[in-house]
Design a protein around this nucleic acid. Structure first.
Length: 274
DNA sequence: AACTTACACAACCGCGTGGCC
DNA sequence: CGGCCACGCGGTTGTGTAAGT
C-alpha cells in the first residue's frame, strides 16, 4: 500500500509553465495569499497543475524579490563554507542568501561551483543515475577507492575540506588503518573536528578555508577558500566583509542576519553526517 | 549546415516531518 | 496515541540551448 498521490496525476499538466499560468498563479497569490493550502489552490484558480508544482513555481520563480542570474564571489564563499559545514542543506544555505532559492543554489552548486572548487568533471557521459556518484568527483586518482559506506556528499565535503587544509591527496588518510572505516571516520570527525572547538570557532580556523580577517593566515600549506575557488592569480580584492575588523568574526560579517548563538541554537552548523 | 555533446536551469518525484483530528 | 494529510526538502530527471566537431 503506497502513499496516496497528492493529486490526480491524470488530470494535471506537467512540464514548463506558460506565461498565462504564471500570471494566474501570481495574481491570485498576490491578492489572496496561498490560503495555507497548496493542494486546493490550483482548483480555486482553475489551473490544471499539482499543488506541489504551484508551490514550487511560486517559491522558485514568481515570488517577489527573487534574484536570478550570476552569483557573486561573496555568495560563492558563503555557499562553499556552509556546504562544508552542513552539507546539502540547501534550504538553510538559501536562508543566508536573500533572494536566492534552495533550488537555485542546488543547481548552481551541482553545475558550476562544485567544478570550480573540486575541479572539472566530465561525467555527463554517464547514465543519469550514475551522475553525482562519488567516483566521478574529481580526485584525479582512479587508483584510490573510496570507502563505500560514506555518502557522496560527505566524501565531497571531506575532499573539499582536505583541499582546504592543503592535503594534495584528499584520500591519503585512508592509508591510515585507524581511518579505514566509517566508525573511525566518525571518531575522527567527532574528536578532531566537532568537539575540539565550537562550530563557529572551527569555521574561524584557516583549515576551513575561511578567508579570515588576517588574510596572511595562509601559512605553510593552508589554502584559502578564495584561492581555491578563484585561483591565486588575478586575485580580486576580497569582499569587504571578509577583511573587516578582526574582532568581528567572518560569520557575523558575512551573514549578519543570524548570531552565532542563533545558528547554534538552530543546529545549522557543525560538520554533519560524515 | 547538420549532428553531437555539454551545460544550465526548470520541474518532478519520493520521503520525512509535523500538525490536526 | 495513532492515522491521515499537507508541506517542505533534497535528489533526480527533463528540456532547451550553446558550443564543439
Amino acid at each position: 500500500m503506497g502513499k496516496a498521490p497528492c493529486c490526480d496525476k491524470a488530470n494535471v499538466k506537467k512540464g514548463p509553465w506558460s506565461p498565462e499560468e504564471d500570471a494566474k498563479l501570481k495574481s491570485y497569490i498576490e491578492q489572496h495569499g496561498t490560503g495555507g493550502n497548496w493542494i486546493a489552490l490550483p482548483h480555486k484558480i482553475g489551473l490544471k497543475r499539482c499543488g506541489k508544482s504551484c508551490r514550487l513555481r511560486w517559491l522558485n520563480y514568481l515570488r517577489p524579490n527573487i534574484r536570478h542570474g550570476s552569483f557573486t564571489e561573496e555568495e560563492d564563499q558563503i555557499i562553499c563554507n556552509l556546504y562544508i559545514s552542513i552539507g546539502s542543506r540547501w534550504s538553510i544555505i538559501a536562508a543566508q542568501l536573500p533572494g536566492r532559492t534552495d533550488n537555485d543554489i542546488k543547481n548552481y552548486w551541482n553545475t558550476r561551483l562544485r567544478k570550480k572548487v573540486l575541479g572539472a568533471r566530465r561525467d555527463n557521459h554517464l547514465p543519469r543515475n550514475r551522475r553525482h556518484s562519488f567516483h566521478s568527483v574529481g580526485s584525479g586518482n582512479p587508483n584510490i577507492e573510496p570507502p563505500q559506506n560514506i555518502s557522496a556528499s560527505a566524501m565531497e565535503r571531506l575532499q573539499l575540506h582536505m583541499q582546504l587544509i592543503g592535503l594534495s591527496n584528499p584520500f591519503s588518510f585512508y592509508n591510515v588503518p585507524v581511518l579505514e572505516n566509517k566508525n573511525s571516520m566518525q571518531t575522527l570527525t567527532t574528536d578532531a573536528v566537532v568537539t575540539t572547538a565550537s562550530p563557529i570557532q572551527q569555521l574561524n580556523q584557516p583549515c576551513f578555508g575561511v578567508p579570515t580577517c588576517s588574510s596572511s593566515s595562509s601559512s605553510n600549506a593552508d589554502v584559502d577558500l578564495h584561492d581555491l575557488v578563484y585561483g591565486k592569480e588575478n586575485e580580486p580584492a576580497k569582499p569587504e566583509c571578509f577583511t573587516k575588523d578582526a574582532e568581528m568574526g567572518w560569520w557575523e560579517s558575512a551573514f549578519g542576519l543570524q548570531t552565532e548563538e542563533a545558528i547554534l541554537e538552530n543546529g545549522t552548523l557543525g560538520f554533519y553526517d560524515l
